[in-house]
Simulated scan of single mutants.
Amino acid sequence: MTRYAALLRGINVGGHRRVPMPVLRELLTGLGHGDVATYLQSGNAVFSSDSGDEKTLAASLERAIEEHFGFGVDCLVRDGAYLRAVADACPFPAATLEGKQLHVTFFSEPVDPGRFASVDAPAFLPEEFRLGDRALYLYVPNGLGRSELAAELAKPRLFPGAVATSRNWNTVVKLVELTRD
């Protein structure tokens, strides 16, 4: 059995697209997954499965959510080894930063670094970003809500066709912990 994290995009924000965590746990259990748990209310779940295919796991969860709630939710599923690798590869001094200053945007597929060439990175300093394996690391010293760089990076032209969802560093670290085998 492999431990996975399901990252749901855009749920429970401002009272829209409500997915209660107890129901999410029930849906994952109903799909045959074990050791199901959720973290926070923002769409983070962990579970064990023999499947081994992250895209199939994500697609089955998306279908279950749509059938149950009547609306679609994009989901990314990543195994614990991948999450550990993302944490280990962080190009910023995570141990010295507050969790709200560092974020990771997870992508459904690799993103062409050339797409980010149009971003005038020096114009946004001290905010910075770096690309990783299906991930973008974002350092925002004053938090995400005030970040002009985050607004620029959120433009769909940078990653057309890819699903993207972000988590702050505290959540990334917790998901690494919760997906340890």
Rank of each mutant, 00 (worst) to 15 (best):
V77Y: 05
E148I: 08
D120L: 04
C75N: 13
K55Y: 13
S42M: 10
P141Y: 07
A85Q: 13
L144Y: 15
T165A: 06
D79I: 02
Q101K: 06
T105L: 06
L158Q: 01
A117T: 12
G99H: 08
V86I: 13
G114N: 13
E67G: 08
R130C: 00
S48R: 13
N44A: 12
E62C: 01
L97Q: 05
A151F: 06
P91V: 14
T165C: 06
F92V: 01
F47V: 06
S42H: 09
L57E: 14
S51F: 09
Y39M: 07
L83M: 11
P113M: 07
V77Q: 02
A154H: 09
S118Y: 05
V104T: 10
L40I: 12
A89R: 08
L131Y: 02
L144R: 13
L138Y: 12
E98W: 07
K55A: 12
S42G: 11
L149Y: 02
S108F: 09
A58V: 02
R134P: 02
R134Y: 00
Y82V: 07
A123T: 00
L138V: 10
P113L: 01
L131V: 02
A121C: 03
L61D: 01
C75T: 14
P141G: 07
G99T: 13
A64W: 08
F47Q: 01
C90K: 04
L144D: 09
P141K: 08
V163M: 09
R146E: 13
P160V: 11
A164H: 00
D53E: 11
T165W: 06
V77L: 04
Y39S: 03
E54R: 04
A59D: 14
D133E: 13
G161T: 02
T105N: 04
S166P: 02
R78C: 06
V77F: 09
N170P: 10
V104W: 02
A117Q: 06
A121M: 03
I65A: 00
A59Y: 08
T171R: 11
A87H: 09
E98I: 11
A64R: 10
G99A: 08
V111F: 02
Y39N: 01
A58K: 02
G80V: 05
V77R: 02
L83T: 10
L158E: 03
T96V: 06
R130I: 00
D133L: 07
Q41K: 07
S118V: 15
V104G: 09
F92T: 03
P113W: 11
S42D: 10
G99M: 09
L131P: 13
L97D: 08
D133F: 04
F159Q: 00
F124N: 03
F92I: 03
R134W: 01
L57K: 04
L97P: 15
F92R: 01
G161Q: 01
P160T: 09
R78T: 14
P110N: 03
L97S: 10
N142M: 14
